[in-house]
Design a protein around this nucleic acid. Structure first.
Length: 579
DNA sequence: GCCGTTTTCGGCCCGACTGTTTTCAGTCG
């Protein structure tokens, strides 16, 4: 078992204990352990492999009991305690508590009194009107359960950040019309630039919060109003996306923004820390616990300052060591858009792009870039009209001409001759050594055989890296969010080899990919492997996707110095030099 | 179950909204 499965088992233990009605602090411990493990950079297996149990001892939130279960799962692939709980509580109840309005207590009552133990059973009971007479339930809760089941079946639960951002911006524009509006901010996981978000959190400050609420609730895309109050409402859109709006007074803006940005685990830690300092943090401000006097609240910076911390960038607020780093003054310097000097992975209409090379270059120039690498597909990717040797040689000649032309115009910008060369099934590259050697920037990537076994895939990629002909390994895990998981590969081994052969790993900025993810980025940084933040643009509009890459990089604690396309052309060319 | 610049025992973030209740428990973020 690996980190995600182990985390899932702890999550389920927490849910099962909660349904069973156990100590809620114990429940929280398991849930916390799951969150921590989910966000761990290094596989538990390798931590355990290197130092045995000792290697697991420094992990915060993992104590004696959970540690022994981790060891058990690594060794045997299962957890006896988890199994034991599943014998007491039907697995279907884990699904039942995912239904909105239904939590562990009510699910337990339904199970105990009606013997319901699955979503289907729950639906039948609700339709037959058997729920309304139960203690704590009524007709309304019965209807809500049916609605909740419907919603659960409808939505996938996760939205790409680009989709959520578009929707959020539309809501922001819509709410701007309210008179006396002060601020409208998209917060929650969107402000943390999480690759996928579960819902949309909007924070508004206004003279008259109720006026904001009124306008919000009449948005034409709303399908259901799930909750509505003076300061807080929740709606479900026709698209299935859920939107929360919180409207508050101006003086609470900073505290509310901090609170509403999350993550939950980060907030709990901040509040816990505040409590120990004799302070109370809520969305209304920071208060002295003894006197009730307000200490901070209008600015987010002041909230952090009040608890003895520097401001922490939203992308880092995932409870992955950011508070310790803040205390020790070693938070990463946030990467800035203007620090990106070029794009090292773009396509043209020679392969499967929609824009010409000239258009791509013009667009890059207008973005203030100093260079782009044109990296069309190689012939193995037939569906993308990949280039054979004759065509890439012709393109290279064209780029030379194009650059000459730019120089004549006094333009400092330069197009680099490149290729997104396919890594074939056997690990060989899809262009000749001669061609690859003559290119400025060789981007290598896997485009087929995603189902390969881990050992085979790792060997395949490492073989390509070892050729000495590759500069950048593109979309290193091959995932497509919501569509295709990452292929099996030993990323640590790939990184070690990349470091040895001066190969950078790509952070693909396409919102469907965002590959590498934050965990791998931190691992790469720790290993000293360089990162190329690229868009894989297939048309001029896609060049703007770099913004997703920049924020994803911040989530991975990546700084300017870790990124090769922050280098000026000269420095970049030195890095790209092969052999 | 975890954890310690009040503590190795006794705490554990904080508040809004809802439905079913006559004062609050459950759910949610």
């Amino acid at each position: 078992m690996e980190n995600p499965e182990i985390a899932r088992v702890f999550h389920e233990i927490a849910d099962l204990l909660e349904i069973k009605g156990g100590d809620l602090f114990r429940v929280r411990s398991y849930r916390n352990a799951a969150l921590i493990i989910d966000g761990l950079e290094e596989p538990l297996r390798s931590l355990y492999g290197k130092n045995g149990v000792e290697g697991l001892k420094h992990i915060p939130g993992i104590g004696e009991s959970t540690r022994s279960k981790v060891v058990e799962m690594l060794a045997t692939g299962y957890c006896a305690y988890h199994d034991e709980l599943l014998r007491e509580i039907p697995a279907g109840m884990l699904d039942m508590i995912k239904v909105a309005s239904l939590g562990p207590r009510k699910a337990a009552i339904l199970h105990k009194v009606l013997g319901v133990s699955s979503i289907d059973g729950l639906e039948r009971a609700a339709r037959e009107g058997r729920i309304r007479d139960l203690p704590g339930f009524g007709e309304v809760s019965e209807r809500k359960i049916l609605k909740g089941i419907e919603a659960l079946r409808l939505i996938s639960g996760k939205w790409k950040i680009s989709t959520a951002l578009r929707c959020g911006e539309a809501f922001r524009d819509y709410l701007k019309a309210v008179p006396g509006i002060f601020e409208i901010v998209l917060s929650g996981s969107l402000r943390r630039w999480k690759e996928e978000v579960g819902d949309l959190d909007i924070l508004a400050t206004c003279k008259d919060p109720e006026a904001v609420m009124d306008r919000f609730l009449t948005h034409p895309e709303i399908k259901d109003v799930l909750a509505k109050g003076k300061t807080k409402s929740t709606v479900a859109l026709k698209s299935g996306l859920q939107v929360d709006l919180r409207a508050l007074d101006k003086k609470s803006f900073g505290a509310a923004l901090q609170y509403f940005t999350g993550s939950k685990a980060h907030n709990v830690a901040i509040r816990d820390r505040a409590k120990r300092m004799g302070l109370k943090v809520s969305e209304y401000g920071v208060f002295n616990s003894a006197t009730g006097k307000r200490v901070a609240g209008s600015k987010e910076e002041d909230v952090y300052k009040a608890v003895g911390l520097p401001w922490i960038p939203p992308e880092l607020r995932e409870m992955k060591g950011e508070i310790e780093a803040a205390l020790e003054g070693r938070l990463p310097e946030p990467l800035l858009p203007e620090e990106i000097r070029g794009d090292l992975h773009v396509h043209t209409d020679e392969s499967d792009g929609g824009s010409t090379l000239d258009a791509m270059a013009e667009a890059a120039i207008s973005m203030g870039y100093e260079y782009i690498a044109v990296t069309d597909h190689s012939k193995a990717v037939g569906i993308a009209h990949g280039l054979d040797e004759a065509r890439i040689l012709a393109q290279m000649a064209y780029v030379d001409e194009f650059n000459k032309h730019l120089k004549k115009k006094g333009e400092r910008f330069r197009v680099l001759k490149g290729s997104e060369v396919d890594i074939r099934g056997d690990g060989t590259l899809d262009h000749s050594e001669k061609v690859l050697g003559a290119l400025d920037c060789v981007v290598a990537a896997v485009h087929s055989g995603f189902g390969m076994k881990k050992g085979e895939m790792t060997a395949r990629i490492i073989k390509a890296v070892q050729t000495g002909l590759v500069n950048i390994l593109a979309h290193p895990t091959g995932r497509l969010l919501g569509e295709r998981g990452p292929y099996e590969v030993d990323m640590e081994a790939v990184m070690d080899e990349a470091k040895k052969h001066n190969v950078a790993l790509e952070l693909n900025s396409c919102p469907e990919r965002l590959d590498l993810n934050d965990i791998h980025l931190r691992l790469a940084k720790d290993k000293g492997v360089k990162i190329a933040i690229s868009t894989d643009a297939h048309s001029i509009n896609h060049l703007q996707n770099i913004v997703y890459g920049i924020h994803a990089a911040r989530r991975g604690w990546i700084e300017k110095k870790d990124v090769i396309n922050t280098l000026p052309l000269k420095g970049l060319m030195r890095f790209l030099k092969k052999g």
